[in-house]
């Protein structure tokens, strides 16, 4: 897909999201691709609480996102309405933490929903608390930087793509709002499949990551080109890297120095060069692991 092929119709208005919110952008882009024959589940999150969506939606409870969508899908089937896409959107905390059980259940059963996780790497709506998707080295309000804990969050983040692949679902992918055509190609693939489809889209948060709002897209790009986030796709048992991540891992394109990605973000300002080096090393290892995975599941 090229930029001028992105659907012109917009199913959202301007709501109360912070200026530069990439979560809002993620939903806006997905809905362009899905179109009006969609019903949506949102959950307590920035997107659920602030976005103005001109598509039918229910804001369900935090752990209930997947199961509510599953019920909608079954209900529509029972009523003979088979041309409607049921989509769910939740943040990284709503997906990788409190919503994981319901999502796992749906994916194992193969319930017919498209689940989108917009990942801004912490609980932003409640005020920047760590989630299981928060990367190591991150300052959050519940992993503050202090004498006894100089690095912020310490443990690695949960890799949701791998979690979902373990369910052997028809389609799963990671994407970034900074690469909208790669993202929408994936939404398009996911739209036409039957069963549980999962898209994990990285969405930088100026408020929670502490950078000026105009840099959301630029920082999202650096997340990918530094190797901190990886664009990949699981398609009926085949795994491949896509876009910039493919170029970095397979075509030998040089990684952006990690400092260029972390440096402009206030949530990493406590990290010294040694810590940044460590993060860069982990990113290289992850990328290499994904490259091998792509070979194994080619």
């Amino acid at each position: 897909m090229k930029i001028d092929e992105v659907t012109e119709t917009d199913y959202m208005d301007s709501g109360a999201a912070c200026p530069g919110c990439a979560g809002e952008l993620a939903l806006r882009l997905v809905l362009k691709e899905l179109g009006e024959k969609t019903v949506l589940t949102t959950t307590p999150s920035c997107v659920g609480a602030t976005c103005s969506v001109n598509i039918s939606r229910i804001n369900t409870a935090f752990p209930a996102t997947a199961a509510t969508s599953v019920g909608m899908s079954a209900g529509l089937k029972a009523l003979g309405k088979t041309d409607v896409t049921v989509m769910a959107i939740a943040g990284d905390g709503g997906t990788a933490d409190i919503g994981l059980q319901g999502l796992s259940g749906a994916a194992e059963r193969g319930d017919d929903i498209l689940y989108v996780c917009y990942d801004n790497e912490a609980y932003m709506n409640t005020g920047i608390q760590r989630s299981s998707a928060t990367p190591p080295g991150t300052w959050t309000t519940t992993t503050p930087v202090g004498k006894e804990r100089p690095k912020g969050k310490e443990r690695p983040r949960k890799d949701m793509l791998k979690v979902m692949m373990a369910h052997d679902l028809p389609y799963a992918a990671t994407a970034s709002v900074s690469y909208p055509t790669d993202f929408l190609d994936k939404v398009k693939e996911a739209k036409d499949r039957t069963g549980t489809r999962y898209i994990h889209v990285y969405a930088p948060c100026p408020t929670g990551w502490k950078f000026p709002p105009e840099r959301s897209i630029e920082i999202g790009k650096k997340a990918v080109t530094s190797g901190a986030c990886i664009l990949a796709e699981w398609d009926e048992g085949k795994f491949s890297l896509t876009g910039q991540s493919k170029r970095l891992a397979e075509d030998g394109k040089e990684l952006t120095p990690m400092k260029e990605y972390l440096g402009p973000q206030g949530r990493f300002k406590h990290l010294d060069d040694e810590a940044i080096k460590e993060i860069a090393q982990t990113a290289r290892e992850n990328l290499e692991e994904y490259r091998k995975l792509a070979q194994a599941y080619s």
Partner: peptide, 16 residues
């Protein structure tokens, strides 16, 4: 008219 601003505007306020 490259549409970069249009596709990236999070709040949908740019019209092509």
């Amino acid at each position: 008219n490259c549409l970069q601003c249009w596709v990236y505007c999070p709040h949908g306020v740019i019209e092509r």
